[in-house]
């Protein structure tokens, strides 16, 4: 299967061209943000200036990061966490920060799907549990923000990624692979 190369800058045009079922490989800067970050933003918290999410990609991930002998960060495991917990907040974060892509696992609900359609964003499903394959795509762990407030797994990490693999499971045209598979599986169970 040939993957579509999704390279920074992640413009609205590139994102609108993506369709459910497309395999992509992402290259560029991405930021992590999970439960604590979403709740914080929802409650009106402000991001540090260095975290620029405009035309950016937010990754639902709490990595394992260690400091090497030279004091540099090294991300040793970095798979996606379950995204649906951010469903109450994600639409707002997409709208307010101009995010073009959300990477996670398990898919998200109707509010996020609607925000993807309205603002030009996609949901990119990474393989849950594949923390090593995905960590190998991180060329550099270039920053960490809000570490003191949230602790390591919940902090905002800045990653430079190369050919990070994901599947588009919710696109900017209102389509969701998750809705389709759910409906099909319920039908199959009733047979």
């Amino acid at each position: 299967m040939n993957a579509i190369q999704l390279e920074a800058p992640f413009t609205e045009e590139k994102i609108r061209n993506l369709k459910v079922g497309d395999s992509v490989e992402i290259t560029g800067v991405i930021f992590t943000g999970r439960d604590a970050v979403h709740k914080y933003l929802h409650e009106g918290g402000k991001l540090p200036d260095e975290v620029n999410l405009k035309d950016g990609i937010l990754y639902h991930c709490g990595p394992v990061v260690i400091e090497d002998e030279n004091g540099a960060w090294k991300t040793v495991a970095a798979g996606p966490t379950t995204s649906i917990r951010e469903e109450p907040y994600q639409w707002q974060v997409i709208r307010d920060y101009g995010i073009r892509g959300v990477i996670g696992k398990g898919g998200m609900g109707p509010k996020t799907l609607e925000a993807c359609k309205e603002h030009g964003c996609v949901y990119l499903h990474a393989v849950g549990g594949a923390a090593q394959v995905l960590a190998e795509c991180i060329e550099e762990t270039s920053g960490v923000y809000m570490m003191e407030e949230f602790g390591s797994p919940e902090a905002i990490w800045e990653f430079k990624v190369v050919k990070f693999p994901a599947v588009v499971t919710m696109d900017s045209h209102g389509e969701s692979l998750h809705e389709k598979i759910f409906a099909d599986s319920v039908a199959a169970l009733q047979q």
């Binding site: 299967m1 395999s23 991930c61 709490g62 990595p63 394992v64 040793v76 495991a77 970095a78 798979g79 966490t81 393989v127 849950g128 549990g129 594949a130 923390a131 090593q132 394959v133 960590a135 190998e136 797994p153 693999p165 599947v167």
Partner: peptide, 23 residues
Amino acid sequence: ATLKIIDKNIAIAKNKSQPICQD
């Protein structure tokens, strides 16, 4: 493709002695 990524992940984790999954 997903199972191939999973299989590759299992091999890397073992070789590097690092967590299979970050959680």
